Simulated assay, not measured.
Amino acid sequence: MKRLLQLFVLGALTALTACGGGGDEAAGSGSTGNEGQSEEAQQNSGNNKGETITFGKTSWTSTAGPTQIAKQMLEEAGYNVEIELLDQPVIWEGMQSEEIDFFMDAWLPYTEEQLWNEYQDDLQKVATSYEQVPTGWVVPEYVEAESISDIKENPEKFGGKIYTIGAGAGIVNTSKEVMADYNLEEAGFELMPSSETAMISELKTKISNEEPVIITGWRPHSMFVDYDLKFLEEPKENFKYDNVYVLSYQGIQEKYPEAYNILSNWSISVDDLEKMMYEHAQNDTPFEELAANWIEENQDKVDAMMEGQN
């Protein structure tokens, strides 16, 4: 317990420092969970009062929307809900120890294969959020290179840098494999872990000057709405299409049966999520507000999830 609490504090501080934000999700940690509910909803949700569900959330914007939607649905069901902003490996360790109840953004079977292999005996896939989404190295369309093999010939054109997100993330580990498989360090390239916010800032700056740049990318993400981008081909196939899952620990269905039933029917479209991410990026609209709007616009689907229906 002491070890995990120390990791929680360290992970939270790291994530807050790295992402330069966190907004409403970070502020939502430790919330009572009933704020914003109608009086009728609070009266009808007495069976779960006093039970607290804790979500692990990374600083990735792809995690923020689904986590906030799930939070609001479980609050409607009567749970108290907390969101812990943590580094990804700490979330998986937290689920193993049952101090984190759900994680809404696990990329499998490929991107987070190492973490899954380590924790799969203790964890389970609760639901599939969306399927067959790409990850890889991304450049602006005006860059002539079409594949990772192409960039090897001109590292100086890109300043010798590939910008990525926080160390420990699956896409960073895969990028290390790519660096090794294509001998890119010897060619003069360096992998630059930072944060999603810092990476996108670098992309924005380079595009504003029409300069070449390489980042790690994935869909869903608002960058593909904001900019004209392309994935570099990767012939050795380190990057593959993934599905995105809701994860929890073994036994969650007995510990919190209603929460499990609701989230086992969870799904969202890539288009819907990218629209939320774009609105947040363009107008700084809080994900809490975007989630409430999505729930209102998809009430039939939400009602079915709340009733435990597919």
Results as ranks from 00 to 15, higher is better:
8 F>C: 12
10 L>T: 04
13 L>S: 15
14 T>H: 12
23 G>Q: 01
25 E>R: 12
26 A>Y: 13
29 S>V: 03
30 G>F: 07
32 T>Q: 15
36 G>L: 05
36 G>A: 10
37 Q>G: 11
38 S>Q: 08
39 E>S: 04
41 A>D: 13
42 Q>W: 09
47 N>M: 07
50 G>M: 01
53 I>T: 06
59 S>A: 11
60 W>D: 10
61 T>Q: 15
63 T>N: 11
74 L>W: 08
75 E>Y: 04
76 E>P: 01
80 N>M: 08
87 D>Y: 01
89 P>A: 09
90 V>D: 08
92 W>Y: 12
96 Q>V: 00
105 D>H: 10
107 W>G: 04
111 T>C: 09
113 E>F: 03
113 E>Y: 07
116 W>M: 08
118 E>S: 09
118 E>W: 03
122 D>N: 13
127 A>T: 07
136 G>H: 07
140 P>A: 01
142 Y>F: 15
147 S>W: 03
154 N>A: 05
157 K>C: 10
160 G>Q: 03
161 K>H: 03
166 G>S: 15
166 G>Y: 05
166 G>V: 11
167 A>W: 00
171 I>W: 07
187 A>V: 06
188 G>E: 04
194 S>I: 04
195 S>V: 01
198 A>S: 12
199 M>N: 13
201 S>E: 14
211 E>L: 04
217 G>L: 02
219 R>M: 09
221 H>Y: 02
222 S>C: 02
227 Y>V: 00
234 E>M: 08
235 P>V: 05
240 K>R: 15
242 D>P: 01
242 D>E: 12
244 V>L: 02
245 Y>Q: 13
250 Q>N: 09
251 G>D: 03
252 I>W: 09
253 Q>P: 01
253 Q>C: 06
255 K>I: 11
259 A>M: 03
259 A>D: 11
261 N>R: 14
263 L>N: 13
268 I>R: 02
270 V>N: 07
272 D>H: 05
282 Q>R: 06
285 T>F: 06
290 L>G: 01
299 Q>S: 10
301 K>T: 13
302 V>Y: 14
304 A>E: 15
305 M>H: 09
308 G>P: 09
310 N>F: 03
